[in-house]
Each structure stands twice: as C-alpha cells, then as structure tokens.
C-alpha cells in the first residue's frame, strides 16, 4: 500500500516538476504544435515523394512515433533532472523501493505519451482524413499503449545514462530522429539495407508500428499478437538494462567511485 502511494506520488511530482517551467501556452505548444508540425512535414514530404495515395502511411507512422517525445525526452528529463538539481543523493539515501521510484519516473510519461498519440491520431484524421473504419479501435488502443510502454523502456536506459553523462540529451535527440528512419515510420523496414534492418529489429516501435498498421487495415488480435509481444519484450529489455545501470551506479556511488555522478 505504502509502495503504491510512493509510486503515485513520485509520478505526480515528476509531472508537476516537469511542467512547472511551462505556462499553459508552453504546455499546449508542446502537446499540439510539435505533433502538428511533425505529421504535416513528413506526410507532405511523403506525398511529394510518392503521391497523395500514400498519405495514410506517413500520417499514421508519425502519429505513433510521437510517443517518443514522452518516452525518450520526458523520461530522460525526469531521471536526468535528479542530477541537475542535486536530488540524486537524497533519493539514493532514502529507503524507498528502488524499482518503484525508478519506474515511477517513466510511468507518467507513458500515460502522457498515450495522450500524445491520441492527439496525433486525431490530428492525422483531421488533416489527412486517414481511414480508421476497418480498425478494431480497442485493439488499436492496446497497440498504442504497448508502443508507449516500450518507448519509455528505451527512455529509461538513456535516463540512467544521463546520470553519468553530461550531454545525454544530445544523444536522445539523435535517437529520436533515428527512430524516424529505422522503425518503419517513414520508410518501410523492408526497403532499408540489410544492416539497417538489423538495427530496426532491436528498436522499440518497429514491431508496434507494423502491428498498428495491420490493425488499421483490419487485422485481428491473433494476427498481431506476436508483433505486440515482441514489442513489449523489447521495451522490457531496455527498461531492465536501464534499471541495472541505475543500481550499478548506486553501488559505485556508495563505494565512492562515482562522485561526479552527483
């Protein structure tokens, strides 16, 4: 019970802390302007390259990839801020359950990421009239949740990195844009060179986006369950790597080996 309370309190503080610099206008721009810009740009680029009939492919892909704004930047910021504001020693010194506080940092961004994709899909619907009439909407929602979870897993890994590296945000930026290339968002994975396809299989989003595309064109749970399970597994692996790094860092810090982490 207590653990649960810590968990939700961590989440809520994370969220508040993250947006305390932002006024409502700042928050809305982050929640709407960037999605509009991204969907518009890549869909129009796709139209320029391949014709208007493919608009759905680009609009859908980019709407789904929006979850990475939360999953990567949000999570990295939440974990990394501990270092910037010097609250890490306090956290490490507290008896709170490590896994709970660690995952608490990501959870709120998963929720926010799902909301972000919902906004993105609505925008894609309005701007490019994407057709969701064949889709099982419940299944679509499941796909979105799973994508948000797995992306946040990747975010947790970079979040832990941010505790030992000064400029991890730059890397996070690079990863965000690389996801646009490798995960079947704008270019079908099958059209990538072989080495790039190998990278794709190791990234979150790839399977989830593919599953979502199939759901939108009418597939049922049975047809996409394998892809979704794979997507979830990938996210879990990254989250575990992140958590082990976090614990390792804690261990090192207590031995006095990583003072600069503070």
């Amino acid at each position: 019970m207590n653990t649960l309370r810590i968990f939700f309190r961590t989440c809520w503080f994370q969220y508040r802390a993250m947006f305390n610099w932002a006024t409502p206008i700042g928050y809305l721009s982050y929640k709407f302007l960037q999605p509009i810009g991204q969907i518009l740009f890549f869909t129009e680029l796709g139209i320029f390259a391949t014709g208007r009939s493919n608009a759905l492919y680009f609009a859908l892909g980019n709407a789904l990839q929006l979850t990475a704004i939360n999953g990567i930047f949000g999570v990295v910021m939440s974990v990394g801020n501990e270092r910037q504001f010097g609250t890490l020693p306090i956290l490490l010194g507290s008896p709170a359950n490590r896994l709970v506080t660690f995952l608490g940092r990501a959870f709120v961004h998963v929720i926010d990421g799902i909301a972000g994709v919902a906004v993105g899909l609505a925008l894609a619907l309005v701007m490019f009239q994407i057709d969701l009439s064949h889709a099982n909407l419940g299944l679509l929602a499941i796909c979105v949740c799973i994508i948000s979870l797995s992306t946040a897993g990747l975010g947790l890994m970079f979040g832990s990195l941010s505790l030992i590296m000064r400029d991890v945000f730059v890397i996070a930026n690079g990863v965000y844009y690389l996801l646009l290339v490798f995960c079947g968002i704008n270019i079908p994975v099958s059209r990538l060179p072989e080495w790039a396809q190998l990278i794709s299989t190791g990234l979150p989003l790839t399977r989830g986006v593919q599953a979502t595309r199939e759901v939108v064109s009418g597939a049922g749970l049975a047809q996409v369950s394998g892809l979704l399970a794979g997507e979830l597994a990938i996210g879990l692996v990254y989250a575990l790597i992140g958590y082990s790094m976090f614990r390792w860092l804690e261990h090192q810090a207590r031995r006095g080996g990583l003072q600069e982490a503070y």
């Binding site: 932002a22 700042g26 709407f32 302007l33 960037q34 810009g37 991204q38 740009f41």
Partner: peptide, 10 residues
Amino acid sequence: SVTNGFEIGV
C-alpha cells in the same frame, strides 16, 4: 517552448 515546438512546422 512555442517556437521550439513549431520548429518542424516551419
């Protein structure tokens, strides 16, 4: 944050 959010829009 507004202009940053609209970078791609530009």
